[in-house]
Design a protein around this nucleic acid. Structure first.
Lengths: 147, 147
DNA sequence: GACATTTTCATGCAAATGCATGTAGCTCGG
DNA sequence: CCGAGCTACATGCATTTGCATGAAAATGTC
């Protein structure tokens, strides 16, 4: 039998655990990446999305919607990633304001190197703690939070 | 019937949803607080812990363990909160290196004002999306992630 | 087609963060 | 009691973020 939590409202109980667990897991992943001399999670997410759209190329505003970053944040993030030689930003022929994002070979390489480190950290932080069925249940409940 | 996710490993499915949902909820809470002209979540958490320990007072290193912040981050956070007049930092008689943190009346007042905004944001972001039983299940699963 | 509005992206400046290091007080072995 | 090492906290400096605003191209309106 679980002792039901009669003190705090259910939203608070969920939020505190959600905040702590996501902070901890994120910290673990970032630390493992840094220890391996690799870029941070943000870079990975950006590289992945750009790589996925590599046939047509990706516009900055499209990436912004997928990454859930503020516009100025993404603008500067891409400046840094481009400065590191992992992506290119070429002017968009169909829209003079815009740019087309593409991964470079080096960018592909770096993302591929990051993946096993990232995956191992996730496995250690999550799969090691939950039965597979619980992981699926947890993912399902989180989906409801996301609408 | 749910279609089981055969593509991505369970850890990844959990992590992406965990990251997105906690970012969204945090964003919602921070926005509501900012719209109400109130300090951010970090300040709330610090004020709450200090207020809880107000009989004996709280040392900085104790607060650090509870808030899960880097030492220098907390040092400067407390400088700002103290500059705003919400806490005091008095030298610790038992340990010349240390300081004792206490809330001021204004600090108490500010935290009390923040609470209903914070609680409403949590309720809107979480309780509105989940049945009470699901919230309890979600909290339980997250507890396992936290060891 | 001219003009106001909106969209797309960049940037100046202040605030916050990360990292390394500094400083002062404590602790403990001898 | 003294010196090595540790603990508690602060800070200089570079990087990153937030916020407001700017600039240039596109879109809509009349």
């Amino acid at each position: 039998m679980h002792k039901p939590d009669t003190q705090t409202p259910p939203g608070e109980a969920v939020w505190t655990r959600l905040a702590r667990s996501s902070d901890r897991i994120r910290g673990r992943i970032e630390r493992d990446l840094a220890d391996a001399g690799l870029p941070c999670l943000q870079w990975y997410d950006a590289l992945l999305e750009i790589e996925r759209a590599d046939r047509e190329g990706l516009r900055q505003f499209e990436l912004q919607q997928r990454l859930l970053l503020p516009q100025y944040g993404l603008s500067r993030l891409l400046q840094r990633i481009a400065a590191a030689g992992l992506i290119t930003r070429t002017p968009c022929p169909a829209d003079g304001r815009g740019q087309i994002l593409r991964v470079t070979a080096q960018g592909r390489q770096v993302r591929a190197t990051m993946w096993p480190v990232y995956a191992a950290a996730m496995a250690a932080a999550i799969e090691a703690k939950l039965e597979p069925g619980d992981a699926a249940r947890l993912a399902g409940l989180l989906d409801r939070l996301l609408d």
